[in-house]
Design a protein around this nucleic acid. Structure first.
Length: 425
RNA sequence: GGAGGGAUGGCAGAGCGGUUGAAUGCACUGGUCUUGAAAACCAGCAAGGGUGCAAGCCCUUCCGGGGUUCGAAUCCCCGUCCCUCCGCCA
């Protein structure tokens, strides 16, 4: 949600910002509506003030035995018009809210121009693709050959875009998640959280998945939803709270399942477990002051990268262009890991800074030290990392000519010392 | 599934028809005291919005909506959420 006051004061900047998102200018319409609302509000408040004044006078008149009848009549007549104006005011406010809640966040100035992922700009790279003296396989071939990855049975159980993993591959995924959480909590200062994966619409509104992207979500018949990312649960931890400056930044991490309907991605990445309806992800969320958020964004991205570096996986960081940046984000770094089987970089993490966009929706504020009042916090979220995709990356990068998979050094303690996964393990 | 209880300021918690935007405590801010700190004492301290250059003035808000009333945090109705007990169940 954008700040109406900011739009009012910077209508041209607002329209420019919309244009970067390929949206039509809206300032004129919004300002008109705002003008109308404020005019009504002023009128309403004048009437309310008079009503309050008269009501008090009635009390006094009655107490002193004077005739209160004319005042009572006046209040009665004011009452209907006040009620009407109140109703109009509510109507206008909810219209305004609806409109504002559908407008995407303002991009930061340094977000590159562009329409889709082809226009994203590489920021840095790490490592290099492993040199294999054989033709690398894709993860699902490797998994099937090991007998530890079964898409057919999953389809029978659950339909397309599901997988059943088993044995050491299942354990490898669990090991990855545990490793990531341990790094974030023990070295990076994140607090481990085990949150609900079922949330109310209100929480999804706060992080701006709702109202615009309901079709991407799984909705239960209780009216609640399965989370598409733990960003929802973690960020909403501060929903409707006023924090003190001293407690910021807050850093949360969680290992959860995520659920996405993948509406609109039919035919995309259908093979393997790259794009599933259900997947595990380790998420990072930071709640900061406005002054801290930019630096925190770099830091968070670094935390995600560190996981890949320790796994000795090659990756590159790209900054998303305007057209590819999500609705609620001001700026996003994607981390793309090298997949030998696909001969391509694929997204494995996405780290976004949202400014006060989500905070305003959630009413998440803090009291600045030495200043009056409250300010909205800034929120950030990033994957650290998508566990399923990390599993893919490990399998493809650590595959051997005989179809076995070496276990990365840092994961061995989590695998009971196992050094290699083969059909026999 | 059955039966009840509740939703008040950052937090806890009074108020149950009339200057109550709201007692009290904690937290927080400033001051006194102190070598410094703590303690103690004094004072201040809700949020959101309108208007104004500003100081200020005004409005709204005691979960949301509607009603009763000259007047509602307080009474009535509807909704949302939370909790307790019983039943069922992991």
């Amino acid at each position: 949600m954008l700040d109406l006051k900011w739009i009012r004061e910077n209508p041209d900047a607002f329209d420019v910002a919309l244009a970067r998102r390929k949206a039509e200018p809206m300032s004129e319409m919004i300002l008109q509506m705002d003008e109308k609302k404020r005019h009504l509000q002023t009128e309403l408040q004048t009437a309310q003030a008079r009503r309050n004044e008269a009501a008090k006078a009635i009390g006094k008149a009655k107490a002193s035995g004077e005739d209160a009848e004319p005042l009572i009549k006046e209040v009665a007549s004011l009452k209907t018009s006040v009620q009407q104006m109140e109703a109009d005011d509510r109507e206008l406010s909810s219209q305004m809210d609806e409109l504002l809640s559908g407008i995407p966040n303002i991009l930061k100035d340094d977000v590159p121009v562009g329409v889709d992922e082809a226009d994203n700009i590489e920021v840095r790279t790490f490592g290099s693709a492993p040199t294999l003296d054989f033709a690398p396989k894709e993860h699902y071939e490797l998994g099937a050959d090991l007998g530890m990855m079964d898409f057919e049975t999953a389809a029978k159980l659950s339909g397309s875009r599901f997988v059943v993993t088993s044995g050491k591959i299942a354990r490898l995924e669990r090991a990855l998640a545990a490793f990531m959480i341990d790094v974030h909590t023990e070295e990076k200062g994140y607090l481990e959280v085990s949150p609900p994966v079922i949330v109310r619409g209100n929480a999804l509104y706060g992080t701006s998945q709702l109202p615009k992207f309901e079709e991407d979500l799984y909705k239960l018949d209780t009216g609640s939803y399965l989370i598409p990312t733990a960003e929802v649960s973690l960020t909403n931890l501060v929903n409707d709270t006023i924090l003190t400056e001293a407690e910021l930044p807050l850093r949360y991490t969680a290992h959860t399942l995520c659920f996405r309907s993948e509406a609109g991605s039919a035919g995309k990445d259908t093979a393997g477990m790259l794009r599933q309806h259900q997947f595990a992800k380790v998420e990072m969320v930071s709640i900061t002051t406005p002054e801290q958020s930019e630096e925190e964004h770099e830091r968070m991205t670094g935390c995600a990268e560190d996981i890949l570096q320790r796994l000795e996986l090659s990756y590159r960081v790209v900054v998303l262009c305007a057209g590819d940046t999500g609705f609620g984000a001001r700026k996003t770094y994607d981390i793309e890991v090298w997949l030998p089987g696909q001969d391509a970089y694929r997204e494995i993490s996405s780290c976004s800074v949202c400014g006060d966009f989500q905070a305003r929706r959630m009413k998440a504020r803090y009291r600045p030290e030495g200043a009056k009042g409250t300010r909205f916090v800034h929120t950030l979220n990033g994957s650290g990392l998508a566990v399923g995709r990390t599993l893919i990356a490990v399998m493809e990068n650590y595959q051997q000519a005989d179809g076995s998979i070496l276990v990365p050094e840092v994961l061995r303690p989590y695998m009971g010392g196992l050094e290699s996964i083969s059909a026999e393990t």
